[in-house]
Design a protein around this nucleic acid. Structure first.
Lengths: 361, 361
DNA sequence: ATGAAAGCGCTAACAG
DNA sequence: CTGTTAGCGCTTTCAT
């Protein structure tokens, strides 16, 4: 009934627990004969190591704590998948926590993970989090902390993010090259860095192609289907309506697409839309959504790798923490394809564009 | 630098570790005064319980292991969410494992969870799993095991599933009541129980409305977008083509919708489609997908509740294990709405239907 | 190459 | 009400 321990094996072989332990851990100073005998007995008695006991003794658990806002966002699902892939190869287990986008749950998650003696924590910050105290506690306890995607430099910990600026630039440039001339942007709260960066990318892409920046074409939503739809409706009601929308992320883009479909300008290729995130649904909707892929699984892998590195080298605390920036990938689908394309446009050719833009259909 | 222990607190207060331990655990035979003093000191010294040590001593970890095929399927994401909700209220933590739909990873997951001394395991069986030996090991170790959704009765453990038969019946009945007369079914591998049950529900609904069962209208796919599309193409190529398709789950339905859109019968309401699962994307595609909701979060909650129950009452092993069957919910969206509806049909009125069915547009 | 013994931090008899 | 003591299962000096 009771689970077999190394003592049971020792008794079986007329030896001691110490020898059994060493044998199982492949200690060099144990004869191959005994090692084999121990392994046999372990198998026969169906021995399974008690990790709790081992952890207590070793002071490490081989558990990696992960805190994500929500497992229902496929983005985080695949990031976790990436983390697990790396963790597995190094003998680590992943303990998952969902913050439900609240600071309260996030702080509780940190506490539980610390109590569980996880060897490290990989986290993506909740939307509603304003204070970073709970994360500081992790640092103070000398537990490795890595942030991914929703990261901040304030904590001075390693991070892995994608280049949001570049992704937004690529998205906007793609719309320009498709021939769209009045490109709007539905952004999100500017205190969240990734949204601010995406706005910058949008602006700079327009500038690079000599478009005038029109403040009316930039509106701020709360990053959801509903606000995406509302913002798009507002844009479409303008006298000088845009002919394309770059949305700050896919759910917002989805709402915008819905608004467009319900509008008079609902013919394919009439109003281009690009999102950001490559959420699972984006390939399935109609029209399928052009978007920026964030390399989520890779992001998870890199985060896990950063952790493994931290375990290795005692990183000099004076040095700045490592920061991995992944390249975004433009995924072109139907929503941004212009039917009658004007041909590719180079930056130099577009001196006239801003003027034309105002009397588009 | 080193983490504070109860001994540190004891020294601080000139008492012993035992007293501190009792105070922190709110033991009745400790004076309120000392309890307060201990709490103060704990706070001041920033004490955090070492769960590893506690677990070793208590023989329990307050960790609940969860094995799911993939976190990227939103269904499992929200089931885990449901589990966490309940776990949290009882002081449990969730350790998550993904089997990636393979038996190998599933078995490794079981082993790791057992080594981690989880207090119980909640699992949903991988598609590719054929042998149940690894699950038997859990039982043999007297660790509570609960299966959800992808469950089996063979193991004699508590399960929580939805009524697949009923869900399929509801889906088919809905199509009948919309006025569709030749309703096809794209099924999945019949050795997986849920798929078999859904086929039964489809057949019985047709029978109940006096439809003839046409074997040509039942085809078997591998449950994916690609096979859904292929199966639908095959159905649409038949001389006696169906006017509606009930797909075994949402991804298959999605493929079928794609095939329909590319076919000559792509006008809204021409060919009805119903899926199964209420995957996140089903609300966003065009047409939005009518489907059967599986109450995923509730399923997770019930599974967690079953675990809590098992911890409580020593369930008599002679008694059959508890089995919770949730009611499916029909979610009506665009894909199944018939434009020119023939009015509702009752079972009694349909004596002629089978004959009519053969010369539908 | 193996054994003896101590201890990781916590909790629970038992004793007072 | 509090202190003493022992031990959960494992690993690791230190001996031999």
């Amino acid at each position: 009934m009771a689970r077999t321990t190394i003592h049971d094996i020792a008794k079986e072989l007329n030896t001691t627990a110490a020898t059994v332990s060493r044998a199982l851990n492949d200690h060099p100073s144990i004869s191959t004969a005994t090692k084999e005998a121990v392994r046999q007995a372990a198998l026969r008695l169906n021995y399974q190591q008690n990790r709790t006991a081992s952890s207590l003794r070793l002071g490490r658990t081989f558990v990696l704590g992960v805190i994500i806002p929500s497992a229902e966002i496929s983005f985080f699902g695949s990031a976790v998948h990436g983390i697990e892939m790396v963790a597995k190869t190094q003998g680590y287990t992943v303990l998952l926590f969902q913050s439900n986008e609240t600071q309260e749950d996030e702080a509780r998650g940190v506490q539980t993970l610390l109590q569980s003696n996880v060897d490290g924590i990989i986290a993506s910050i909740a939307k509603e989090t304003t204070s970073l105290d709970h994360f500081l506690e992790i640092k103070r306890r000398n537990v490795p902390l890595i942030l991914f995607d929703r990261a901040t430099d304030e904590l001075g910990v390693p991070t892995v993010v994608i280049d949001d600026y570049k992704g937004a630039y690529m998205a906007t440039e793609h719309l320009i090259q498709q021939g769209y001339r009045r490109i709007a942007h539905i952004s999100g709260p500017q205190h969240i860095k990734i949204f601010h960066e995406r706005l910058r990318g949008y602006v700079d892409a327009l500038k690079a192609y000599n478009f005038k920046i029109d403040g009316d074409l930039i509106i701020y939503g709360k990053v959801s289907i509903v606000t995406g739809r509302a913002c798009a409706q507002q844009l479409l009601a303008m006298p000088n309506r845009p002919d394309a929308i770059f949305a700050v992320e896919d759910f917002t883009a989805l709402g915008a697409l819905q608004a467009i479909k319900e509008s008079p300008w609902n013919k394919p290729g009439q109003i281009g839309v690009v999102g950001f995130a490559n959420e699972a649904f984006s390939a399935y909707i109609t029209p399928s959504l052009t978007t920026i892929d964030q390399q989520t699984a890779l992001m998870g892998q890199e985060a896990a790798n950063l952790f493994m590195d931290m375990k290795q080298e005692e990183h000099d605390p004076a040095l700045p923490p490592r920061k991995i920036v992944l390249d975004p990938v433009l995924v072109i689908r139907q929503s941004s394809i212009r039917r009658a394309t004007r041909g590719k446009l180079t930056k130099e050719e577009n001196h006239l564009a801003p003027d034309h833009a105002s009397h588009l259909p």
